[in-house]
């Protein structure tokens, strides 16, 4: 893997979020402003993280792009078209894995291609390749209940990649995993991503996860959920975790972002 990664063609927007607000009715008379006037453009092929404390609406924003939730106000667009519902051009990967427990690993990964009328033999060959790519060769005929959390998330990733979405929507995908498994999956995700450079929108509350993975980190604050700042992460790729952790520029990004969150917390508590 020695492809030139420093030079990239002028990026074009694939997702545009245009003044999106989301209000949830928490009780009969109380409304909760989950997202307030969010505008954001995501370039094709970029790895963008949405980073923020729990309750800042970062997952809701992802669900709006996925078409699972309709915004109260504003609109999200995919390649210029307003998003009105879910579609195979945007593939979600959830923290809860959401695998089909009655299907084997192979059955789960083949589900999307089969839905799109890919011939069974072809879908199976592709799916077996993906299962190998996520490191689960030999587990094709296992049921989800027989797998660990990390393995389930690998299957979920393969299942989503199988139907070739243009954008991956990852909703705290490694949030339910232990630290060790989490680190390994982050590495593997980057390896996979560096091969085909799909656009990724990645929701997380972990600062170092966001910096390690992303080209761009969108910092959000809560009550109401707003974009606080967008930070371009200018670190070379391919990134290797053990090298990056020693890199002063990486450390500075992490420290700076953490400091900004701390300041906003203090500002929030005194106001």
């Amino acid at each position: 893997m020695t492809e030139p990664v420093a030079i990239r063609k002028a990026a074009s927007a694939i997702i545009e979020i245009d003044r999106v607000s989301q209000i949830f009715q928490t009780s009969a008379r109380k409304d909760h402003l989950a997202l307030s006037d969010i505008s954001l453009t995501i370039d094709e092929g970029a790895f963008v993280s949405i980073l923020g404390p729990s309750g800042c609406g970062k997952s809701t924003l992802l669900y709006i792009v996925g078409g699972f939730v309709s915004p109260t106000d504003g609109a999200a667009k995919m390649k210029g078209k307003t998003i009105t519902g879910p579609g195979p051009d945007r593939g979600p990967v959830f923290q809860e894995f959401a695998l089909f427990p009655w299907k084997t690993v192979l059955g789960n990964v083949m589900y999307g291609p089969r839905q799109q009328r890919v011939r069974a033999s072809e879908a199976e060959a592709q799916s077996r390749g993906l299962i190998e790519m996520v490191g689960l060769k030999g587990y094709e005929n296992f049921y989800p209940k027989e797998l660990s959390g990390g393995m389930k998330q690998r299957v979920a990733l393969a299942r989503t990649l199988a139907y070739h979405p243009e954008v991956l929507l990852m909703d705290e995908p490694f949030g339910a995993l232990d630290a060790h498994t989490r680190t390994r999956l982050q590495n593997d995700l980057l390896n996979i991503w560096e091969r085909d450079r799909k656009t990724v929108l990645f929701v997380t509350h972990s600062v170092d996860e966001a910096v390690f993975l992303s080209d761009k980190v969108v910092m959000m604050s809560k009550s109401p959920g707003r974009i606080r700042q967008v930070i371009d992460v200018d670190l070379p790729r391919p990134r290797r975790r053990n090298e990056l952790l020693l890199e002063p520029r990486y450390q500075k990004y992490v420290v700076d972002i953490e400091r900004m969150f701390d300041e906003s917390d203090e500002a929030g508590s005194t106001s």
């Binding site: 078409g67 879910p86 579609g87 195979p88 979600p92 959830f94 959401a98 695998l99 999307g112 139907y163």
Partner: peptide
Amino acid sequence: EEKMLWSGAAMGLSAIQRMVRIVLPAAL
């Protein structure tokens, strides 16, 4: 699980297909 239905919707399953091919087996 809602997310299971969302995963199906993203693959292009219609509401009726989600009922027959996700809700039914999941609730079996």
